Amino acid sequence: MDDPDPGSRGDASAPWQTLSAGFEQARAREDSLDRLVEWPAQRALLGDVTGLAVLDAGCGNGAKIVQLADEGAAAAVGVDISGNFLDVPAGVELLVGDLSDLAAVPGLAGRRFDRILFLQSFGYAADGVRALRTARQMLTEDGFILLTRTQPVRYALEQAERNGTSLGEEYFATEPFTYRHRGWDEQVVLTKRPYTMSDLLNTFSAAGLWPETTVEPQLSAEAAERHPHKQAVLNAYLGILVFKLRPLPTAWLEERLDQH
């Protein structure tokens, strides 16, 4: 999970105004892994959005929710703390707010959504379990959450290279570490709280969710041939995990609460 260094900012939105702009610039490049790998996989799992209500939590400048509105989403809402949004087209709402508590974002109270997206944004939540529980309560009866996270092994490998340690040492490390995002903006210091696969799965369970589908998307053969430097990155550090999360049955949740 990434958080801005509290000592480097005057307010919570300042670093994200800088980083969101950097991300969109990186995403615009022809060799962007978001364009080549992540968004196609996310879009495939979302399926047809025609007539659906979609919420993008941590939407950056709102480009993806705008695309979903163009593809037929009946309600298209994006939330981001940066407020660094595109011009809002008709049929799209872009709201300034913290994804840590979506129900507290002005304009979202009492609303329900068929799809709620946390596209590489979930790690910014102050309390992941609470954030997902709130999102689960905002789902329609047949709704689901689409959540993506970087493979935790990637961070362990990078840290092992930096520190001269082993993969196992870094994978199971619990102490936060700071770094600068060279791909977006090196002026902003970020703090990462390490996580493992079991951390992710236990977080989902504690929030009352189960992963109906999980994918680990890769470059297509054509894209790998066109961008061998990106394939080299994936070969060395792996990529992302995409989870389609469904609410657990109410009876199961009640039984678990009774046990505790």
Rank of each mutant, 00 (worst) to 15 (best):
F177E: 05
F177S: 06
F177C: 08
F177H: 09
F177K: 01
F177V: 04
T178Y: 06
Y179H: 10
Y179V: 03
R180M: 00
R180E: 12
H181A: 15
H181I: 15
R182D: 14
G183S: 02
W184P: 03
W184L: 15
D185I: 02
D185G: 07
E186C: 03
E186V: 03
Q187F: 11
V189S: 10
L190V: 10
L190P: 02
L190N: 03
L190M: 14
T191W: 01
T191P: 00
K192G: 04
K192S: 12
R193T: 15
P194N: 05
P194E: 04
P194S: 08
Y195G: 03
T196P: 02
T196C: 05
M197I: 11
S198A: 14
S198T: 15
L200M: 11
L201A: 06
L201K: 00
L201W: 06
N202G: 03
N202T: 07
T203D: 08
T203H: 03
T203G: 04
F204E: 00
S205G: 07
S205Y: 13
S205C: 08
A207L: 10
A207Y: 02
G208C: 05
L209R: 00
P211S: 13
P211Y: 04
T213C: 13
V215N: 11
V215D: 10
V215C: 10
E216A: 13
E216Q: 15
P217C: 09
P217I: 01
Q218L: 06
Q218N: 11
L219R: 00
L219H: 02
L219P: 00
S220R: 03
S220M: 12
A221W: 05
